[in-house]
Simulated scan of single mutants.
Amino acid sequence: MRSNKQSHLKYLIRLWTLRIIQGALIGSSAILPGVSGGVLCVVFGIYQPMIALLSHPVQSLIRYYRLFIPIAIGWVIGFLGLARVVEVLFDASSALAASLFVGLIAGMFPSLFREVEKKGTGAVSWSYFVVSLVIFYAFLSSLKAGQTIKIAPTTAWYFLCGAIWGLSLVIPGLSSSSILVFLGLYQPMAAGIADMRLDVILPLFVGIVLSAVGLARFVNFLLKRYHVFIHHVILGIVVASTLLIIPSGFSSTVQMMLSVAFFLVGYTVSLWMEKLSAVAGKQADGMSLDYDTKRAKLRRADH
């Protein structure tokens, strides 16, 4: 009995460790230009549970609350703590920071492609992927190449920042921070969050909630009705957005070599998280298992 309890405890520790790390990475990605929190939700396997939660909060919370508790804890840690560390890394060398995140996402590509193949294969299905890859790469490239403009920040503009942020959660590949940099709102918003200014934080979070919840039900409908099409399109968006954050201009050979090293670190960590996820129960469905049911199984095993 004691060994079974210890085994179950180790299972929970591994699972919570994985989810807190994933939540921290998602939280830190929220303020990093060029990195989409929605993309990380996809590669970490929590995108559909998140959309379901936003679409049907009560029903989904009952099913996925064990998934979202550690994710939420990690998000707060990443947003308030790890994000600052990574932001310093971006300030020191955007190439190294981008290489780290590219490695994290690339490490999930094999499993991501396998999951998409389960939804549908064939020329038609993969044509959805190719078309979405080309369209979103062109669209995001045009945003990236645009000239930065300046807007005087107000409560209304901070609400818009939150609305754009919410869209980036629901639409993988849409980097909210990149758009906010383009609008000239990124720095005052980040400074307001760092200073814990309520006149910045409150309209920001209201915008996030209204935007994410308002769009999530529609996206959830598309996932159920056109799952083959949507999954291949999402994969195209993920690949397109990842290609755009690959650093290209290196200041020296040393920086290029360090970027490769950071990529490998991110890739290794990503593979480790996937392995940990497999050992601990895999993806979000493992979190929906009822704890009392598991205890009953353990009692039967003892007898």
Rank of each mutant, 00 (worst) to 15 (best):
R2K: 15
N4P: 00
S7R: 11
L9G: 00
K10W: 14
K10S: 08
L12T: 05
L15T: 06
T17P: 00
L18G: 13
R19I: 06
Q22K: 07
G27M: 10
S28C: 15
G34H: 07
G34K: 09
S36R: 09
G37M: 12
C41R: 12
V42I: 15
F44K: 09
I51K: 02
I51D: 08
A52L: 11
Q59H: 08
Q59P: 00
Q59V: 06
Q59L: 12
I62C: 08
R63I: 10
Y64W: 10
Y65S: 13
I69K: 09
I71F: 06
A72E: 07
G74S: 03
W75C: 04
I77W: 06
F79K: 04
L82W: 03
V85K: 13
E87F: 02
S93I: 02
S93F: 03
S99I: 00
F101S: 01
F101P: 01
M108S: 15
F109Y: 03
F113C: 00
K118C: 04
K119C: 06
T121C: 08
V124C: 04
S125K: 05
Y128K: 03
F129D: 05
V131T: 02
I135V: 04
F136V: 04
F136S: 03
S142V: 08
K144F: 11
K144R: 15
A145F: 05
I149P: 00
K150C: 00
I151K: 01
A152W: 13
T154V: 05
W157F: 14
F159G: 09
F159V: 05
L160A: 03
L160V: 07
P172I: 06
G173R: 06
S177E: 02
L183F: 06
L183M: 04
A190G: 01
G192V: 03
I193Y: 14
R197L: 07
L198M: 12
D199W: 12
I201Q: 11
L202N: 13
G207A: 07
V209M: 03
S211P: 06
V213R: 13
V213S: 04
L215K: 02
A216D: 04
R217G: 06
F218P: 00
F218C: 05
L223E: 07
R225S: 08
Y226G: 08
Y226T: 14
H231S: 15
H231Q: 13
V233Y: 07
I234C: 05
V239K: 13
S241A: 07
T242H: 08
T242S: 13
I245L: 07
I246D: 02
I246A: 01
S248W: 12
F250G: 01
V254G: 12
Q255K: 07
L258F: 01
A261E: 09
A261L: 10
F262Y: 04
F263D: 00
F263N: 00
L264N: 01
V265P: 03
G266N: 00
L271Q: 13
W272S: 15
M273Y: 05
S277P: 11
G281M: 10
K282R: 13
Q283L: 11
A284G: 09
S288A: 15
L289Q: 15
Y291N: 12
K294D: 14
A296M: 13
A296C: 10
L298A: 05
R299M: 13
R299H: 13
R299L: 14
H303V: 11
